[in-house]
């Protein structure tokens, strides 16, 4: 991996010194060799905290929601997935593109933090699942680019082999699979809160007084949450895999998201969310040519 840490610091420092950005979002080292943590730099001298290594896995885009009302610009380092997250927010009218300075970084694929924890310091750590599945390691939008694009050869279409495998199972097997997984869901909402597509000002699941979803933790409530969320991000999910990465009980959340992506691709034509900001979302409107056999 090309060490761009010094360049990152220099770029951030310049943005802050020149007053072009009020704050710069990046990653700093965590307490473990395999951990990094998002960092928010607003003083040029603090840019020394910024790093770039194979564990800068967090998608930083969603933090832009916290800076909606900032008077000034935000600099943010973006990998492929972060940049798609930015497009996501811009397209959802949650973010003014003019208010962000995107500093692009080509992502070699980040390592799996959980595996690193398990395997110990000397092991060969595999790439995180979300990065193995990634088809856009280079940022799809940026203002400045650091290092060189890898133009890595990536599959043209989303790999939905796991979805297809699930589709071959019997209804009972599917039911068992999903109930087993959602029985253990803690409803901590980490998946929702880390998601750049989950940007509603007030989430339906927080409106507890309405009775949409009871707080009681049981498999039916948990699945209602999971399915509703999956449908709600349908056509908007940028496949960054953050939901699945952060799940504290390892629920294969992307399987649901990918199933919906697969269906959308089939019904409305291939669509990769977060590549641009102008086109209408596949589920954001209708055409006379839309299939309607299911209606």
């Amino acid at each position: 991996m090309v060490d761009l840490t010094l360049e990152i610091r220099k770029t951030a420092k310049e943005l802050l010194e020149k007053g072009e950005a009020k704050v710069v979002l990046g990653w700093e080292k965590g307490n473990f060799p395999y951990s990094t943590t998002p960092v928010f730099i607003d003083k040029p001298e603090d840019t020394e905290r910024l790093i770039w290594d194979e564990y800068c896995i967090n998608n930083l885009a969603l933090y832009m929601l916290d800076y909606k009302h900032l008077d000034g610009k935000v600099g943010i380092f973006v990998k492929g997935c972060d940049s798609r997250g930015i497009n996501r927010l811009v397209q959802d009218k949650q973010l003014d593109r003019e208010k962000v300075i995107l500093i692009g970084l080509s992502c070699p694929g980040m390592k799996d933090e959980k595996k690193a924890k398990e395997l110990g310091p000397n092991a060969d750590i595999p790439m995180a699942q979300k990065c193995q599945d990634c088809r856009y390691p280079d940022p799809v939008v940026y203002d400045v680019f650091l290092g060189e694009k890898q133009n890595k050869k990536v599959p043209e279409k989303i790999d939905t082999s796991d979805v297809e495998e699930m589709e071959t199972k019997s209804p009972d097997e599917k039911y068992r699979f999903f109930t087993t997984n959602y029985e253990k869901c803690l409803r901590c909402y980490a998946c929702r809160n880390v998601c750049p597509a989950c940007n509603c000002k007030e989430c339906i699941f927080d409106q507890t007084a309405t009775g949409w979803l009871a707080k009681a933790n049981n498999v039916s409530n948990n699945m209602f949450f999971a399915l509703t969320r999956a449908m709600h991000v349908g056509g908007r999910c940028i496949e960054c895999g953050e939901c699945e990465r952060v799940c504290s009980v390892n629920i294969p959340i992307m399987l649901l998201n990918k199933k919906i992506i697969k269906d959308i691709n089939f019904l409305f034509g291939d669509y990769d969310a977060g590549l641009e900001t102008e086109e209408r979302l596949p589920l954001g409107g209708y055409d006379y040519t839309d299939p309607e056999e299911f209606m």
């Binding site: 980490a190 809160n193 880390v194 952060v246 504290s248």
Partner: peptide, 13 residues
């Protein structure tokens, strides 16, 4: 608090 997502993972585990 800046980086906190306000999920409940920490409190539930």
């Amino acid at each position: 608090s800046k980086k906190c997502l306000n999920c409940g993972a920490c409190t539930y585990v």
